[in-house]
């Protein structure tokens, strides 16, 4: 009985599916953007480690500090970094006093202790990086209705994040293909999903002056700020890998011991 009912149900499902499969398809409208859109270009950072496998790679502290400088002097005008507190910047190699000074240089929203009116005060190390706009409406109003995303998680929030950000930042020089119209107020960038991005070209050569004398080319600044943003997305990365290596070594030995135990227990037993 079950078999007959099942047989019938199976036939109906199969026919319904095959009818669908045999139906002629409307000719697919080709999406012109798909042809222009480019996937991120290959690039490698120190934290990617030897062979790019990322097992032993650690952040380059000097690069993180340069990247932070690029973020602070260029990106932070429009993009927030709300999940990073000033105290976290110690991980970039800044001393406690430097962190305090960095915090003090930024104002964070507060209440006036006398009047209770909204006001600002210099940030403390425990404060988070203040957002450039008080809310989304203000952000859109200031940016031609585009919303500059918060960058704290940007590397994890995009496929192939580091390469994507780097390609995007350096992808403004590509020529607009023949016959492709870019809406007024948008900019052509083939690495952006719609190839028309609201953000104007953010980096130009020598835009920042690096304290360590590194030449500030667009490519250099882009690599640096991407490294910094990777740290912002994954501050636990180095510790994670250290513990990971130790864990795998430990489990490797344990597996060998478990195997020897198994052999010993089963010695002489046919199976």
């Amino acid at each position: 009985m079950v078999r007959f009912l099942g047989f019938g149900a199976g036939l109906i499902f199969v026919i319904a599916l095959l009818v669908g499969a045999l139906m002629p398809r409307e000719a697919a409208v080709e999406d012109p953007i798909k042809k222009i859109h480019l996937y991120p270009e290959a690039a490698r950072w120190q934290q990617d480690g030897p062979l790019g496998m990322g097992v032993f790679g650690t952040y380059d502290r000097a690069q993180l500090q340069r990247g932070f400088q690029v973020y602070k002097e260029v990106c932070s005008a429009c993009h927030g970094l709300e999940r990073i507190a000033f105290r976290n910047l110690g991980a970039l190699g800044f001393s406690e006093a430097e962190v305090k000074a960095l915090a003090k240089a930024r104002e964070v929203p507060s209440l006036d202790p006398q009047t209770g009116e909204p006001s600002t005060r210099p940030a403390l190390p425990s404060d988070h990086w203040p957002s450039p706009y008080p809310n989304e409406v203000a952000a859109r109003a200031a940016n031609n209705n585009a919303l500059p995303p918060d960058l704290s998680l940007i590397i994890k929030a995009r496929p192939d994040g580091k390469r994507y950000v780097h390609s995007l930042l350096t992808g403004y020089d590509k020529p607009v293909p023949q016959g492709f119209e870019i809406t007024e107020g948008l900019h052509f960038n083939p690495y952006f999903h719609s190839v028309a991005i609201a953000m104007a070209r953010p980096l130009n050569d020598e835009q920042v002056t690096y304290a360590d004398g590194t030449k500030a080319t667009v490519d250099q600044m882009s690599m640096d700020v991407t490294a910094f943003l990777h740290w912002a997305s994954e501050p636990e990365l180095e510790r994670r890998r250290q513990i990971g290596v130790a864990t795998l070594i430990f489990l490797g030995i344990l597996t060998v011991l478990a195997w020897l135990t198994y052999r010993k227990v089963w010695a002489g037993v046919a199976h």
């Binding site: 496998m53 990322g54 994670r240 290596v245 489990l251 227990v265 089963w266």
Partner: peptide, 27 residues
């Protein structure tokens, strides 16, 4: 002890693969 010993081997191998994902490609 026969299958506890055998399962323990399996668990160790499983944990190794699991750890490789958790620590090196968690996303």
């Amino acid at each position: 002890p026969y299958f506890t010993a055998k399962d323990f081997v399996g668990i160790c191998v499983y944990l190794m693969i699991f750890a490789a994902f958790v620590f090196f490609m968690p996303n």
